[in-house]
Every structure is written in C-alpha cells, then in structure tokens.
Simulated assay, not measured.
Amino acid sequence: MSGKNMKFLYAGIAIALLISVLAPFLASPDPDGLESAASGVIEESKLSELEGQEPAVSSPMPDYAIEGMGKSGEVMAIAIGTIAVLAISFGLGKVFNKKA
C-alpha cells in the first residue's frame, strides 16, 4: 500500500472511532426506526409476544452497552464493536486479496 492510501486508511479508522465515541451522546433516546416500523406492520399483541421472547443468540453487549457502566460502557461497547468489525474486514481483505 502506498503512503497516500495508508493515510486514507488511518483517517478512516480515526473517523470511525470518533463516531463510536460520540454516538452514545448524539443518539436519540426515542425508539429506533425498526421498532417504529414493526409497530406499524405487526399487531400489537404479536409484537408484545415477540418482545417477551428470549433471543436465539445472546449478545455479549446488549443494547450497545456494557452493563453497569453507564455512558462509558456504551462508548466502550461501540468502540469494541467498531474495532472488531475493522479487524474482521482487514482479515477478510487479506484472505481474499491473495494472488492465486
């Protein structure tokens, strides 16, 4: 990778991490669009039943937060998720970029 591409990559990573740090403070406390759309399409009784069910797979950081840590837990959860996605993307890029 050339120096210009590396600077672009580092700037992108820095922006992603900046957004992950600011997101908990800028996010709306209102229900998200998916919940609003579901309430308009699914009957209220069925929606309540679905919300009461246990998830098929439990999340390591439900609701984008680390329990008991408040806003700092939200920042850490989103930053960890961002770094994980970047690392997985980098790894997949390395695997699929190999020349045959």
Rank of each mutant, 00 (worst) to 15 (best):
A56H: 08
A56G: 01
K4R: 13
F90W: 15
A87H: 05
L26F: 10
A77D: 03
S36M: 15
E35T: 11
A14S: 07
A100N: 15
M6P: 01
I42N: 05
E49F: 13
S20V: 03
I83H: 08
K71A: 04
I78W: 05
A84V: 11
L50K: 04
A100C: 08
I80T: 02
F8T: 08
A77K: 00
L34G: 07
G33H: 12
T82S: 09
K71Y: 05
S28N: 13
G70R: 02
S39K: 14
F25G: 02
V85P: 04
E44F: 11
S58H: 03
N5V: 10
L34V: 11
A100R: 15
G40P: 07
P24C: 06
A37H: 12
P55W: 02
L18H: 06
A84R: 04
A27E: 09
P62V: 10
P60C: 03
S58T: 05
S28M: 11
L34P: 00
P31C: 07
S72D: 03
G91M: 14
I15M: 12
G81Q: 02
S45L: 13
G33K: 14
S89A: 15
K99Q: 13
G3C: 08
E54D: 13
M1E: 11
E67V: 07
E54I: 07
M76N: 04
G70N: 05
G3D: 08
G70K: 05
